[in-house]
Structure formats: structure tokens, C-alpha cells
């Protein structure tokens, strides 16, 4: 069966948005997220990440779907939680990018660590692409996706561990 990366990632995207908006649907006002902001943020994120992918050297025309699915994945892992937790606050984005050693609350940690992990993972995943090993997984964007997923999981893990040992942020 032919792999369909784009369809798969769109499906993933939709299901994640639904999953994230579930608390809202049931009236669990845990974070009071604005559904529209989350949706728009994730959607815009796809374009932003596609653009970044091209800036990093992905071809504009060839492998369009590969780049798009990579962008979708990143949008789900990065834009979605960002817009969910921080809406469009550039101050919050800046703090995550440039002060990432000092998140104070559980929410900040659980949002920022996986994001940072996904970014760094994807960045490291891009390193082997130009090497001449001629392995199938060097195909763009497979190694980036692997790196992204692994980095994200590591981020989640670190966030959980960090929350255990830091008690000052127990209140939300």
C-alpha cells in the first residue's frame, strides 16, 4: 500500500485539535482555551513551518508533500500547544525560545519542554541528511520526523520529572 504522508498528518492534525478541544466541549474549563485561536494558530503554523523548511533548503517544488507533512507534524507539536497555552502572546513565545531554562509553573514546563525537545530533535535529525551513507531513512524528512518525535517525548519526560522535584509551581 502506498504511504500517504499528507493525508495521515492532516488526520493527525484534526484529531489533535479535536482532542485538545474536548475539555472545552465537556465544560472542563481547565485552561480556558479559545478553540478558534488554537485552530488558527495550528493552521498558520503549518505555513510558517513550511516556509522555514524551504528556508532551510527544502525544495520549493519537489517533495512538496514531504515538506508539507513535516510542517504539519511540527505545527501539531509546536504551534498547537503554544497557541493553546499562550494564544498569540509574542512575549510568551520569546520567553520560551530565549529563557528556556527558567519556566516557573507546571503548565509552562509541560508546554515549553516538549516544544523545545521537538525543535532540537528535528534540528539534530536534519544533520545526517546530506551525508553520503545512502540509507533509506536519510530521505527528507524521515530523520527529522524521527528526531522531532523522539525530542518531543524526551521533553515530556523531562517536564514530568522536573515537576516532581520543583514544588513551587504546584498551583496552576
Amino acid at each position: 500500500m502506498k504511504a500517504r504522508p499528507t493525508e495521515a498528518s492532516f488526520l493527525l492534525l484534526l484529531s489533535s485539535i479535536v482532542a485538545f478541544s474536548l475539555p472545552y466541549q465537556f465544560g472542563w474549563d481547565l485552561f480556558q482555551p479559545d478553540q478558534t485561536v488554537t485552530f488558527v494558530g495550528t493552521f498558520v503554523g503549518i505555513f510558517v513551518f513550511h516556509f522555514i523548511g524551504i528556508i532551510y533548503g527544502a525544495s520549493c517544488l519537489d517533495h512538496f508533500l514531504n515538506t508539507l507533512s513535516w510542517a504539519c507534524l511540527h505545527s501539531i507539536y509546536i504551534s498547537l500547544p503554544l497557541s493553546f497555552a499562550h494564544q498569540f502572546s509574542s512575549e510568551a513565545y520569546y520567553n520560551i525560545v530565549h529563557n528556556f531554562f527558567r519556566p516557573t509553573t507546571h503548565v509552562e514546563r509541560s508546554v515549553s519542554f516538549p516544544i523545545i525537545g521537538a525543535t532540537i530533535g528535528s534540528w539534530i535529525g536534519a544533520l545526517p541528511i546530506p551525508l553520503d551513507w545512502d540509507r533509506p531513512w536519510q530521505q527528507w524528512p524521515i530523520s527529522c520526523v524521527i528526531g522531532c518525535v523522539v525530542g518531543h517525548s524526551c521533553g515530556v519526560l523531562i517536564a514530568i520529572i522536573a515537576s516532581r522535584y520543583k514544588s513551587q509551581g504546584m498551583h496552576l
Binding site: 528556508i55 533548503g57 513565545y93 553520503d132
Partner: peptide, 25 residues
């Protein structure tokens, strides 16, 4: 070493993106 240009493209673009985000902020 043969593909050193890839290293430099990758590093310089990454740095520019980081710097740009600061400038934007």
C-alpha cells in the same frame, strides 16, 4: 569536509532564524 557547504548553510540559517526572532520581538 567534502560537503562543508551544507554545514555552513545549516548553521548560518539557524543562527539567522534565532537572531530574527529576537529582532522581531
Amino acid at each position: 569536509v567534502e560537503e562543508e557547504h551544507q554545514t555552513w548553510y545549516f548553521l548560518s540559517i539557524s543562527l539567522l532564524i534565532i537572531r530574527s526572532s529576537i529582532a522581531m520581538h
